[in-house]
Design a protein around this nucleic acid. Structure first.
Lengths: 126, 126
DNA sequence: AATTTAATGCAACTAAGTTGCGTTTGATGT
DNA sequence: ACATCAAACGCAACTTAGTTGCATTAAATT
């Protein structure tokens, strides 16, 4: 049933996610919140915020779980059909703007699709 | 520079990958090879086979690395633009037949794309 | 058969993520 | 304002995927 109390740590995590496109791992979040927050708390809050439809998650190419803001999700409806991009140079991960629909074989009942593009971002592609 | 010697363990791993579409994790491989093979060996062989263009890898929704046979790759050219499917019920993972091309924003220099569909496979969708 | 070096096994390690439990703290009622 | 109670927290210990160093084994070549 997700987050019930608006604690300081919740506020700080939401601040870390102020960029609507940027995706963060638990470790990145821990680094940003310089004043000591426990990693267990971060992992648990990310779970709760995901339940609430505040953030969505996906697995990066490095097999690390990344989280980013949701924009039209709730605790009852989670819908993401946008791709994500991971820069192989600076390792930044983010949501891309366009939606993708794939027509999968009929015998498969597809519930979700995760698309991860890898390459060099604008800043790293020189 | 990949596999240089055709050892028994290499043979056994290639047998495990006889299904051209099925994707396997290191753990699954270890289970299949009932006679003791060390996990380090499996991880190392998978790396080498990937270098050689014999298998390709991708990250599952469970943040576990999966490997599957390549069909037209070599040590110099690795090219995969097909999606993968992971059944949320039986956890089997496999390659799908169709190729996908996405038009990413121009400012991004995309080198590779990973598409993972999640849902129920034919056998589990009742 | 002897030699060489890739491949293997083992133990110890790293890193992401989880769990149990005792303590703290935010929300609610009086 | 204060007591209460469960949500949220911190800590330590754990699980699991994957890696590394090193000594040993076994393919390939002579």
């Amino acid at each position: 049933m997700g987050v019930q109390r608006r604690t300081k740590t919740v506020e700080r995590i939401l601040v870390a996610f102020r960029d609507p496109k940027e995706a963060l791992s638990a470790k990145m979040l821990l680094c940003r919140m310089d004043e000591g927050v426990n990693k267990t708390t971060v992992y648990r809050l990310l779970d709760r915020l995901e339940d609430d439809g505040v953030v969505h998650s996906f697995s990066g190419d490095d097999s690390i779980k990344y989280y980013a803001r949701c924009h039209s999700c709730s605790d009852t409806l989670h819908l993401h059909s946008h791709p994500h991009f991971q820069c192989v140079s600076c390792d930044k991960v983010r949501c891309l703007d366009f939606e993708v629909t794939l027509d999968a074989p009929e015998n498969l009942q597809v519930m979700e699709s995760q698309i991860l593009l890898k390459g060099h971002c604008e800043l790293c592609s020189n």
